[in-house]
Simulated scan of single mutants.
Amino acid sequence: MNIEIVERPELKAAVLQIPRDGRLVRDAWAQVSARLKHHPGVADREHGYVFIPEWQWSTEVTTLWVGMVVDHFEGLPSELQQITIPAKRYAKLTVRGNRTHMEEAYGALFGWFEQGPYERDVRDGSFGYEMNRLQPVNPFEIPADDIDYFDYDIYAPIKDETEL
């Protein structure tokens, strides 16, 4: 599996925070996309984002933030939370395949960090994210128990050398 190191610009997102559960992810996506359907500030309508609180990896990831990237926070529906992910360096891995492939991809990413020389940024407040392609098939419209093909990019934050 090909893991590359990429620099990503700051992201602003309109999100809903939910417990980690595939059905709730889909419900949250439906709510966010409905509320932002005609909002002019949406910066990316080609992807749906799931933000992962990296600090929870030490025990278990129990919370996710689901949403869309926006240019600005002005005029967003009050029901949506606002998060800003700072510009950062990430380990990027593309997942395209069935559930087994997805699990292998996450295993490969964890192994990659274990081998070094990079350290995953799991400090409080650090977010990784999954950038899900919405075309040709929107994965958020397939029930969590039924989906068996995944097409998204994982962005796992890397600690800067000055933070080690």
Rank of each mutant, 00 (worst) to 15 (best):
E74W: 06
M102C: 06
E79Y: 02
E104T: 10
T94C: 04
E74C: 04
L93E: 01
Y106F: 15
F73H: 11
F110R: 01
H72N: 11
L93Y: 04
M68S: 13
G67W: 03
E79A: 14
F73Q: 05
H101R: 12
F110K: 00
I83P: 08
Y90D: 09
T94D: 08
E79H: 06
E103V: 15
P77H: 06
L80H: 03
G97E: 03
H72E: 14
A105C: 15
K88G: 13
R99D: 11
K92D: 01
I85T: 06
R89Q: 15
I85H: 04
N98Q: 06
G107W: 02
P86F: 07
Q82A: 10
G111Y: 04
I85C: 03
M102A: 12
L93A: 07
L80S: 04
T84A: 08
A105L: 01
M102N: 13
E104K: 11
Y90T: 10
F73V: 10
A108E: 11
N98A: 10
S78T: 12
H72I: 00
G107P: 02
V69L: 07
T84P: 02
Y106C: 00
R96Y: 11
K88W: 11
G75W: 12
D71P: 01
Y90H: 10
H72D: 14
H72V: 04
G97V: 08
G111V: 05
H101P: 00
T100H: 11
G107Y: 02
D71Q: 12
V95D: 04
K92R: 15
R99Y: 14
I83N: 02
L80V: 09
R89F: 01
M102F: 13
V70L: 06
A108Q: 14
S78D: 13
E104G: 01
H101I: 12
N98E: 13
G97L: 06
D71W: 04
P86K: 07
V69S: 09
L109A: 05
R89M: 12
E103P: 00
A108S: 13
Y106V: 01
S78V: 09
G111R: 12
L109M: 14
G111I: 03
N98F: 07
M68W: 12
V70N: 10
R96Q: 14
A105K: 01
H72G: 10
A105I: 02
M68L: 15
L93R: 06
K92M: 11
E74Q: 13
R89Y: 01
Q82S: 11
R99T: 09
A105W: 00
T100V: 15
E104M: 08
E79D: 15
V69I: 13
Q81F: 04
R99N: 12
A105G: 03
P86Q: 08
E74N: 12
E74M: 07
L76G: 09
I83Y: 02
M102R: 15
H72R: 13
H101V: 12
K88A: 15
E104D: 14
G67K: 02
T94A: 10
D71N: 14
K88P: 00
L109E: 01
P86M: 09
Y106D: 00
Q82F: 02
T100W: 09
Y90M: 05
V69E: 12
